[in-house]
Computed example of a mutant assay.
Amino acid sequence: MKLNKNKTAFGRHETFPLRYGWLTKGVEVIGKQKGIFQEREHETAMTELGLGRNMVNALHYWLHVTGLATFVGGDGSVSPLGKALLGKEGDPYLEDEATLWIVHWLIASNAEWATGFFWFFNHYSAPRFRDKDALQALEDFVAQELGLKRAHTTLKSDISTLLRMYSPVASRGGEEHLDSPLASLQLVNIDEGYGYNSLRTSRPFLPTVAMHFALQQRFAEHAGKHQNAKEAAIPVRDLLYGGSGWAAPGAIFRLNEDGLMTCLHQMMEDYPRMYELRDTAGVNQLYRLTPPQRPETVLANYYQHYKGEAA
């Protein structure tokens, strides 16, 4: 999703990082009672989910950010993406690490509903930083690049929540953030004696389906009115660093250049005749050779194969 200064959201998570089981619980309860996240149903939601009021609001937000559920007039429905990812044919218990990488992509690429998270993974390039450094950089970005005014406390809550959600050590610092699933990806770590680090590395164990999923979404959005054309291309540099407000898989997955290229080559082996790298007029570009797949189709094909191998 492309960054648009007229469509931003900060601090909507009630300061609660995403927890293990939350998304699956949310998908399950919406499937049974579509209006459970309406204000008048909060007591029921608290009982069904075993969560406090503010946590219910946070779960509502994370379901919305990830696109696993859609909400119209207060009523929720599980999206095709939600069914494919966390339904009985998907990975409801988050047993496959690829599922976490895909959830991470869904959050960090959502410039409209998780603007602070989008900024951190797509724009903030400091490999080592303190929380106050990241906060200052976010405040500068919001004021200077977006031309917006947002409360210091709101932006501070985004940085604090992000660090607790992604930092493995920080997530064990207290009961309230004991079990954040995205901490296991090690995209943010404690840097002893300094603060935090979020380093671009090769990440050889990044599941290629996560890159494939991200690229299918990226191509569909980037291509715009030409998305149904047989071929489309994105410069590799844009995939690594982003461009014109688009989410960059290389940045979101914290890949260095070698890591991105290795992942792309492995992905082309795993998904033959779907992509091709070409040097066009001196610009290295990734072409897609087929129309983009729907996200739920990517997931359905992957989990069918994954569960077949596990059987």
Results as ranks from 00 to 15, higher is better:
residue 58 A to S: 15
residue 295 P to H: 04
residue 295 P to R: 04
residue 9 A to L: 13
residue 2 K to N: 13
residue 183 A to S: 15
residue 60 H to P: 00
residue 69 A to K: 08
residue 221 E to R: 13
residue 35 G to L: 01
residue 144 Q to L: 13
residue 168 P to C: 09
residue 108 A to G: 03
residue 98 A to M: 09
residue 310 A to L: 13
residue 84 A to V: 02
residue 65 V to G: 10
residue 7 K to Q: 14
residue 14 E to I: 01
residue 66 T to I: 13
residue 134 A to P: 12
residue 44 T to E: 13
residue 30 I to D: 06
residue 46 M to F: 00
residue 84 A to E: 05
residue 202 S to V: 15
residue 1 M to T: 14
residue 261 M to Q: 12
residue 308 G to W: 08
residue 200 R to L: 06
residue 213 F to E: 04
residue 243 G to T: 00
residue 176 E to F: 10
residue 73 G to T: 10
residue 24 T to P: 00
residue 311 A to N: 09
residue 272 P to Y: 03
residue 171 S to E: 09
residue 23 L to V: 09
residue 246 W to A: 08
residue 48 E to V: 11
residue 307 K to R: 15
residue 40 R to V: 11
residue 265 H to R: 15
residue 141 F to C: 00
residue 311 A to D: 11
residue 213 F to S: 03
residue 111 A to G: 02
residue 140 D to M: 05
residue 57 N to I: 00
residue 237 R to P: 00
residue 288 R to T: 01
residue 61 Y to R: 06
residue 133 D to A: 11
residue 207 P to T: 09
residue 276 E to T: 03
residue 85 L to A: 03
residue 272 P to M: 05
residue 150 R to F: 00
residue 153 T to W: 00
residue 240 L to I: 02
residue 126 A to Y: 12
residue 259 G to E: 01
residue 273 R to K: 13
residue 159 I to P: 07
residue 208 T to D: 09
residue 281 A to E: 15
residue 30 I to M: 07
residue 248 A to P: 07
residue 57 N to T: 07
residue 238 D to S: 13
residue 302 Y to P: 03
residue 209 V to N: 03
residue 127 P to A: 05
residue 172 R to Q: 15
residue 254 R to I: 01
residue 98 A to R: 07
residue 191 D to M: 02
residue 272 P to N: 02
residue 22 W to H: 06
residue 43 E to Q: 14
residue 258 D to A: 13
residue 256 N to R: 01
residue 202 S to R: 14
residue 248 A to H: 08
residue 229 A to F: 04
residue 197 N to S: 11
residue 222 H to C: 00
residue 107 I to M: 13
residue 67 G to C: 07
residue 55 M to V: 04
residue 44 T to A: 14
residue 205 F to C: 01
residue 16 F to A: 02
residue 199 L to R: 14
residue 276 E to H: 06
residue 79 S to I: 06
residue 304 Q to R: 15
